[in-house]
Design a protein around this nucleic acid. Structure first.
Lengths: 130, 130
DNA sequence: CTATTCCATTGACAGGCGTCTATTCAATGG
DNA sequence: CCATTGAATAGACGCCTGTCAATGGAATAG
């Protein structure tokens, strides 16, 4: 920890432009940021996070009628959250008769997961993440 | 993929309670969901995601005056995003004279990162994630 | 002391979000 | 054909969010 990189001297003159030339740049481009932020935004609600958690655990398909009683919410509200997740590309659904079964699209979370640190300590990982 | 777990028969009677007993449960509790959702929510904006990306790359500290010109936003707006990230516990700042230096709190992203899949393929990982 | 500079805060505004009730739609059962 | 049931949609409501211009506060330079 505490890498102390000290990017720029910058202790000189408070006058003039603070940093004559930009020294840092985003490493991810705008589209990547948009995509990952959209995923993160959809996960940015405790209910939706738990829905995704449930769907992931049961890799098969889970009926909406099983989801609703898990949360102290009305059925339309749960349906709304599912719609948000569907529009974010995180889940998809399949109708069988009267019931709708939802499941997580596995690849949807990968880009964000790869960007985030901490899936496991680096020394136990062979991936090339920084 | 396509585990086809088929959690419940549920092809029987459309009448009566659809699922007499709940068969799935969230595996994470409410507090975990709240914490992770708060982090995800803070990351749910492309600007903030890129800010975190920049701060992470330069593990030392980055001056606000370097951050502002990177985005086509006013200085108060960037300051606002930094405040959101600070209140989410993702970053912290340190003042040195006139300048404010921001840095990522490494542990902040760990819980969410561990929950998400895809940091690397499971076979290259020794972690115990499902 | 005064002027300047960096950053944070305030207040305003439009748009988005989470929730509900009420309604609609599609499929099944009798 | 009609009644019933699971799920999605519509509309309404209060609150939160992202943005900006304007202001304020702390530290430095002269």
């Amino acid at each position: 920890m505490a890498v102390e990189l000290e990017l720029a001297p910058k202790t000189k003159r408070p006058a003039g432009e603070c940093c004559t030339e930009p020294l840092v740049y985003p490493d991810i481009n705008g589209e990547q940021a948009e995509r990952m932020a959209a995923i993160a935004k959809a996960l940015g609600d405790p209910i939706r996070l738990q829905i995704v958690d449930v769907l992931r655990k049961h890799a098969g398909k889970v009926c909406v009628c099983e989801l609703v009683p898990l949360f102290d919410l009305s059925q339309p509200t749960v349906s709304h959250h599912l719609k948000v997740l569907r529009e974010a590309g995180i889940v998809d659904s399949e109708r069988k008769g009267l019931w709708a079964y939802y499941y997580v699209i596995p690849s949807a979370l990968e880009e964000l997961g790869a960007w985030l640190p901490g899936c496991c300590p680096p020394e136990s990982c062979n991936c090339d993440r920084a």
